[in-house]
Structures are given as structure tokens and as C-alpha cells.
């Protein structure tokens, strides 16, 4: 029947859009890379590529958590400042309280997790829209990070990890050197990059193979149907936001280690880069579809673009403009595809 066939094709192309967007995003990444390689001799150097990888690491990890949230058709605006709060907590634990580095890392990750958990509870129990709930958390976390950083000296100051040099090495040394060095002697990939890819593998595993991942997609695809299937939507949604918090906490530890300090004023704006990475990677803001690989590609597009423009001596202000245009373009292409189907 004509009716039947057209429904089938319509829906099929909607489904393919995620894969298509991913392909498109990957193609875009290659094109951006090639263009900058042609435009500047300094772009495709080992040193610069490592710089791009490193710049992607923190945003990439943040974006992983945001991916889950957006697949449920939610949003998390708090990941940036929660990351900062986690960094400050790690800093306090290690430098002010003098506890061992692993404890500091654990505290950082738990801080992020708690913030995510609270987001989830506020959204699912108090029924506050995700945008508002996480906007509130964004401000709360920013404030708390500043307050906590004054505990030591009375003024807002970064917390430095000068007494624990091993903390910095967590992200900045390279466990992969023994493997990579023999092939490419100049190419020393910092652990931060390795951690991001590891986190991405874990995220992909959770999304694809676990109950949490299944319900993340189910809730985003049709929340009411999921509820009618007997799934406790409130609890699982809380879990999704808590998972987002885990990644924010991890990002907090990573950025503190990389900068060798917890910078309490940093972090605002990171959430937007993370959301942009997720969206460019083909995750639909209306929920139900999205992939971890897409998000990682999206994060690379943003950092490659930023890096390339900087190398081209484009002022930072203009870098924002370009990134903004790319985000709008990516979402517009997505909308065009949907409208066609």
C-alpha cells in the first residue's frame, strides 16, 4: 500500500539522520583539518596536533555526560561550573587538608556526581524543567566554587598543587609513550587524551549495553510510553543526570591536574562548548538518538576550529563568532533533513 510504504520511508530516513549527521560531522572534521593544513604550515605539526588533542580532552569528557542528558530530551547547563566546583574540592582535599592524591580525585568525582544527582532529583521529583534546574545548579556551583576557594586565604585565589607534583603528571605525563615513541618520536600524547578516550569507551558501553543506556534512549524516544511500560522514569532520569555529574567531576579533576591548579573563576561557558559538541555530533535535542562517537567528533571539530583560527591569527572574539555559526549550521542541517522526511 502506498500509505504504508511512505510511512516506512519517512521514518527510516529520520532514523538514518543520526548516522548521516555523524558521517557529515566526520567529513567536516577532515575538511576543516585539510583547510587549515593548506592555510598554515604550523597547523599540521606534531606539537600542534597534540595541542588540539589536549584541548579536546576536558570538553570531550564534559560532553559525554551531556550526551546522555540530551538523549533523554533534557539539557544540563551546570556541567561547566560543576566541573570547577569539583576541581576546587579536589584542590582543597589535597593541598589544604593534605589528604592523598587518590582521595582528592575521589572527592572531585563525588562532588560532580552529587551535583548531578541533585539536578536529577530536582528535575524528576520537584518537576522543575531541566533548563531551569540546571541553570540554578550552574549558578550555585559557580558561587560555591568561589566561596570554597576563599577558605584558605580569605580572598578568591586559585589553589595550586605545588606540593604534589604527581597530581599534574596524572594528565600531563604519557603512559602511551613506550608504544608511540618508537613510531613517532616527537609525538607524546598526554594521558588526558587517553583518559578522554577511555571515558568515551565506558560511556559508549553504558549507552549501548546497559539498562541505564537503554532507558536513556527509551525516555528520550517516548517518555510516556516508557512510563506506561512500567519503567520508573523518575529514578532513571535522576540516574542519567547523576551520570552526567560523574563526567563533570572527572573533567574537574582533569582540568585541575592539567593547569596544576584549581581555578575557581574558570568554567562558565564550558557547558555551552559541551552542548555544542553534542549537537554537532548529531545527538537530537528532541531526544531518542545520539552517539558517543558523534559527540567525540563534535568535540574535535570545536577544538580544531578554535586552534586553527588561532594559528591563523584570527582574534579570539572572531573565534567565538565562527564556532557559533558552526553550531547553528549543524543544527540547521539536522532540521532540514527532518523536514525533508
Amino acid at each position: 500500500m502506498a500509505v504504508a510504504e511512505s510511512t516506512v520511508t519517512t521514518k527510516r530516513s529520520v532514523l538514518q539522520s543520526s548516522a548521516a549527521q555523524k558521517l557529515l560531522a566526520f567529513g567536516a572534521l577532515i575538511v576543516i583539518f585539510l583547510v587549515f593544513t593548506l592555510l598554515s604550515p604550523y597547523f599540521a605539526t606534531a606539537e600542534n596536533i597534540i595541542g588540539i588533542l589536549l584541548a579536546t580532552a576536558v570538553n570531550g569528557v564534559l560532553a559525554l555526560g551531556v550526551t546522555f542528558v540530551i538523549i533523554t530530551a533534557g539539557i544540563d547547563l551546570s556541567v561547566g561550573t560543576v566541573m570547577t566546583l569539583s576541581a576546587v574540592m579536589t584542590g582543597l582535599t589535597i593541598t589544604v587538608y593534605g589528604l592523598p592524591v587518590p582521595v582528592g580525585i575521589l572527592v572531585g568525582i563525588l562532588t560532580g556526581t552529587s551535583a548531578g544527582l541533585i539536578n536529577g532529583l530536582v528535575i524528576s521529583r520537584m518537576r522543575i524543567p531541566p533548563f531551569i534546574a540546571t541553570l540554578g545548579m550552574m549558578m550555585i556551583a559557580r558561587g560555591l566554587a568561589l566561596v570554597l576557594s576563599t577558605l584558605e586565604t580569605g580572598t578568591v585565589k586559585p589553589i595550586y598543587f605545588n606540593d604534589t607534583p604527581e597530581f599534574r603528571l596524572i594528565t600531563m605525563s604519557s603512559v602511551l609513550d613506550p608504544i608511540i615513541k618508537p613510531i613517532a618520536p616527537n609525538f607524546s600524547v598526554p594521558n588526558a587524551v587517553f583518559i578522554m578516550f577511555l571515558a568515551a569507551l565506558v560511556a559508549a558501553f553504558i549507552l549501548g549495553k546497559t539498562v541505564l543506556g537503554r532507558y536513556t534512549v527509551a525516555m528520550g524516544s517516548n517518555e510516556e510510553a516508557t512510563r506506561l511500560s512500567g519503567v520508573n522514569v523518575a529514578n532513571w532520569k535522576t540516574a542519567v543526570y547523576a551520570l552526567g555529574g560523574v563526567f563533570s567531576g572527572l573533567a574537574g579533576v582533569m582540568i585541575a591536574s592539567r593547569l596544576n591548579s584549581a581555578q575557581p573563576a574558570l568554567g562558565a561557558g564550558y557547558e555551552l562548548d559541551a552542548i555544542a559538541a553534542v549537537v554537532i555530533g548529531g545527538t537530537s535535542l528532541s531526544g531518542g538518538e545520539g552517539t558517543i562517537l558523534g559527540t567525540i567528533i563534535g568535540a574535535f571539530i570545536i577544538s580544531t576550529l578554535t586552534n586553527g583560527l588561532r594559528i591563523m591569527n584570527v582574534p579570539q572574539e572572531w573565534q567565538f563568532v565562527v564556532t557559533g555559526l558552526i553550531v547553528i549550521l549543524a543544527v540547521y542541517l539536522d532540521i532540514l533533513r527532518r523536514r525533508r522526511s
Partner: peptide
Amino acid sequence: LNLMPHLTLAQNVFVGREPRGVLPFLLDE
């Protein structure tokens, strides 16, 4: 209709009571 369009038929039929794998949080697809 109350199916989740982005899930497979099997995933739809068993949503909310999926058979679990070796660990309780893993799905036995």
C-alpha cells in the same frame, strides 16, 4: 501507539523488564 521509535522491536517488547546478562546492569540482547 506507544512504542519507542528509536528502539528495536525486541527492545520495545521487553522495555522495563529486560533479561539481564552476566552482571545485573547488563542487557542480554
